[in-house]
Structure formats: structure tokens, C-alpha cells
Design a binder for these strands. Structure first.
Lengths: 147, 147
DNA sequence: AAAGATGTAAAATTTAAAATTACATTAAGG
DNA sequence: CCTTAATGTAATTTTAAATTTTACATCTTT
């Protein structure tokens, strides 16, 4: 039923990893400070991104790096990594409709097609936004602030 | 952050009103039974649809009718009626990012463009689904069950 | 083996949605 | 003109979901 904060936090972390990862070791503690959320949340998000082969985490000693070209990373991948069933939850349905009413009996079936269309369009929209674009926008913003 | 059950319930009610409204008076009590949710919720949803000129409610004595051609009613209208800020809430953002980090300081601004694109695409997708299509699907399902 | 990191389960807290309660208002019918 | 059956809406309670916290296991370099 929603795209939670996890997706925004994931993007935030990916920017940090791309920008700072080359020079410094990026840890979950640092990302927790930067994002303002709990290190455990960060680790669960990082763990999900790792499972999707978006980042690599150096075990034991820590540190995180991107393991794909940012042009190959899009918002659909990020969001479905950190929130696997977000497309299912995107549209909420009432589940206690009356079986005695012909509409109530069939409403779930009737909503299936339009709601799937919305999910497909959403997936398509998100897959067209890449991390590369977001990084470019970040760099534009940063350089304008250094004047 | 989500498209709540209210939208699904609204569609359910609109189907009932279209199918049964000509012969019978459709009241919030009946819609509550059919949808399985509380009459007060139904009235708040009906009230929202009325404000958007999607339905007309006969005051005092009750009864509800569509006041537009179903081809002119789409999911965007329905959803934004019953949940005015659903597009804003569609994507969640973390709000406690650190001002000390250049990413944290700017993350809200950076996410603005991609998230607005997602909202616009979503709005477009939903505006292409009309109540007329849904009514047609309903009638197909119903007639197949009468064999 | 010690230090500093990740991995993850489980409980507690917070937040948002939905349901309920209560009561005011409206209009037709007797 | 008063009763009835309906809508309108504010305020509270309940429920459900997301987030945070706590706790502890594991892993790797030094």
C-alpha cells in the first residue's frame, strides 16, 4: 500500500556510497548518522541491496561499494530490493465484502485488471529513473552551493 | 504513502450505485453491508464523491445516483476525491537526515524531480482507467456466472 | 584473542488507518 | 408538526503496520 521511507533511505545511502566510498570506508554507523535512521534499519536496507547485487559489503571489517554502473541501477530495482512486495501493497483492497451481494462477491476479481495495469505502469515509470540521473542532479546541486 | 482501501471501497460503491440505483434506493447502510465496512466510512467516502460531482445524494430521505457518464469518471478522480493527498503520500521520505552531510542536507531537493515524475506517471495511468471499463468487466463476470 | 564491523531475531514504540460512538441535520409521510 | 429513516461530521477508540530499539551472533583484520 505504499512506497515507504526505505526506498528514499536506500537512494540516500547509494549516493553516499558513490560519492564517499572511493576515499573512505562507508559504514552503517555513518549512514545512520547521515540519514537519521537507526543502524539496524540501514543494515537491513544494505543487506537487501547486496542480495540484489547492487552493492558489495566487505564482510567483517566493513565498508560498502557499488558493484554496478549507476546507469544500470534504477528505482524499480532499488525499491523492489528493499521492499519486495511494494507493488502488491501499492493499492489497498477491502477484504470483508459480502458474499451475498453480486458486487461484493466479485469485487476482488473486478479490481484485478485495473490494479495490475497501475502496478505495471508504476514499475515501468520507476525503471526509467536511474541512479546515474540522480547522481548527476546531486552533483549539480553541490557544485552550485560551492560558489 | 499509499493508495488506501478507501479507493477500492469507492469503486465498489459506484458499481452498486450504477447497477442497483435505478430500481432501488441505495443507502449507506446497504453499502456498508455490501462492502463490509462501517456506515460512517461509507458516508465519508460518499460525501467526498459528492463534493467532486461524481455522485448526487438525495438529502434527508437518502439514496444515491451517479451524476456523470461512467466514461467521464476515472480512477484518478475517484482516488483523489476520497484521499485528497494520495499522490503526495505515494512516496515516503525520511525527514531527519543530517544537515552536516552534503547528501543529507540536499536529499529532499534531489528526490523532488524523480518522485514528481513517478507521481505524474501514476496520475496519468489512473486517469486512463474509467468507471465505464470497470462496469463492463463487472457485467461480463456477472453474465458468465448466470450460465 | 581483541576490536570493529555486519547479520538478524524479537520486543517495544510510534504512527497512521479504520471503526465506533455520539449527536446534529434533513426531508418525506402520516 | 412530529416521527422516521436517512445523511453529515466531530471525537474517541481500536487495530494494524512501520519503525526503532535491544540484544546477541558472526565475521575478518590486526
Amino acid at each position: 500500500m505504499q512506497i515507504s521511507k526505505r526506498c528514499s533511505v536506500a537512494i540516500h545511502c547509494l549516493i553516499c556510497i558513490h560519492e564517499f566510498g572511493d576515499l573512505n570506508k562507508v559504514t552503517s554507523k555513518q549512514l545512520a548518522l547521515s540519514t537519521g535512521c537507526n543502524p539496524v534499519i540501514i543494515r537491513s536496507i544494505m543487506s537487501a541491496l547486496k542480495k540484489s547485487d547492487i552493492i558489495a559489503i566487505k564482510p567483517g571489517t566493513g565498508g560498502t561499494t557499488l558493484c554496478k554502473n549507476p546507469q544500470k541501477i534504477n528505482l524499480l530495482q532499488i525499491c523492489s530490493s528493499v521492499e519486495p512486495d511494494f507493488l502488491e501493497k501499492l493499492v489497498g483492497e477491502h477484504t470483508c465484502a459480502s458474499k451475498l451481494c453480486p458486487v461484493g462477491r466479485n469485487i476482488h476479481l473486478i479490481l484485478k485488471k485495473p490494479y495490475q495495469k497501475i502496478r505495471d505502469d508504476m514499475a515501468n515509470s520507476m525503471s526509467n529513473i536511474t541512479l546515474a540521473e540522480i547522481l548527476k542532479d546531486y552533483q549539480t546541486v553541490i557544485s552550485s552551493q560551492q560558489d
